[in-house]
Nucleic acid binder design. Structure first.
Lengths: 192, 192
DNA sequence: GCCTATAGTATCGACTCAATACTAAATCGC
DNA sequence: GCGATTTAGTATTGAGTCGATACTATAGGC
């Protein structure tokens, strides 16, 4: 038989239900402020991503959405003058995204902060962050292992060891550390 | 000045970000299976709600959505023959919702279970559930206190003390316990 | 019986999202 | 170098979400 594939515990089920409910609250908060949830997520991402990561493709990866979807969201944000697009000089196909001053200002009133304050008030911030981190790690590992991201596919990863620089292997621009060929195939906790 | 209203801690912010990311994973899983996330949520709710709570209005409350939105979602689910509507005999305006056998069968493969298994694997199920519970409680209290639900607005609440039954006050059909007038104004953890 | 509150539906407009199809630029393979 | 493949991004379409608004019908207070 196909069997039940190790039934999840009641406690885990309970946690997932709570998680859905909480995230729905955040979305409701998002919506109240004029922007759609996905638009907020894009702004949040852009505020946290390094300069290699502020592209539509990286955003699509982060959100787990297709590029087409992200493209639409970005058009909406550009129309609202919260995000600016500038062609990359390195790669003429590519686009550099940046927040406008309006976008930055808007993030000051991010509804996420309300929930963060609630979490602080609950006194469970540390345990919650730890539990979520572990759960996310597991979830990403399960879904192909790819999602947490091996460095090779990471925006922070710069390949090396080509041509005359054959000595230096690869490089992570976030941690500013060299990476061996083997390291480069491992998941990066700080992956885009 | 308006001031920053007690900046949330970095840890809480981190937790919120993780929460969004995790819930996005669940949504992606939902979507992959043909139904939209909101439709899944409706099915999940109907599977867990008691008979007083299986109405469009209660579902709208639970989801934090408007009745119009829920009405649309239910139409889609009815078209797919996952949910059935039957007019209530108590109140001819009202509709009783129930899962069809197809709806029940579909819930067997709920993508939520995958994440629940991930949480089990992370070994953080207890801490996570506890943290989420506390955070949700705080969040609901903040947003007017109404959301967790005072018994008066709860589907499990049956008013009493009218006419010849003036002795017995109110009653909660879920816990099967009488409720004083004061109790009835307090939040109920098991609220719809 | 009237008046108001409530249950639910219909419709509209902005947005999400996947799928598909497309253009243009970079990179590889030889 | 030069053609084939890969990759970055956009346009379009169709199903669905969601709030707002307006509507019908029933319930319940007085």
């Amino acid at each position: 038989m196909k069997k039940s594939e190790s039934l999840p515990s009641g406690m885990a089920l309970r946690a997932v239900l709570l998680l859905e409910r909480l995230s729905r609250l955040v979305r409701a908060g998002d919506h109240a402020s004029g922007l759609a949830p996905a638009q907020w997520e894009a702004l949040r991402y852009l505020a946290r991503a390094n300069r290699f990561s502020r592209t539509p493709a990286a955003l699509a990866d982060y959100l787990g959405a297709t590029r087409g979807t992200v493209s639409q969201t970005l058009i909406a944000l550009e129309d609202k003058e919260l995000v600016r697009k500038t062609g990359s000089s390195r790669d003429r196909r590519s686009v550099e995204l940046s927040l406008t001053s309006g976008g930055v200002a808007l993030l000051e009133h991010d509804a996420l902060k309300d929930l963060a304050r609630d979490i602080d008030a609950s006194g469970e911030a540390d345990g919650l962050a730890q539990g979520l981190q572990a759960a996310l790690h597991q979830a990403l590992v399960r879904r192909g292992g790819r999602a947490f991201g091996v460095c090779r596919t990471c925006r922070h990863f710069r390949p090396g060891g080509r041509g005359d620089k054959a000595g230096k292997p690869h490089h992570c621009t976030l941690l500013d550390e060299p990476l061996s060929d083997a390291d480069a195939s491992l998941v990066c906790f700080e992956h885009t």
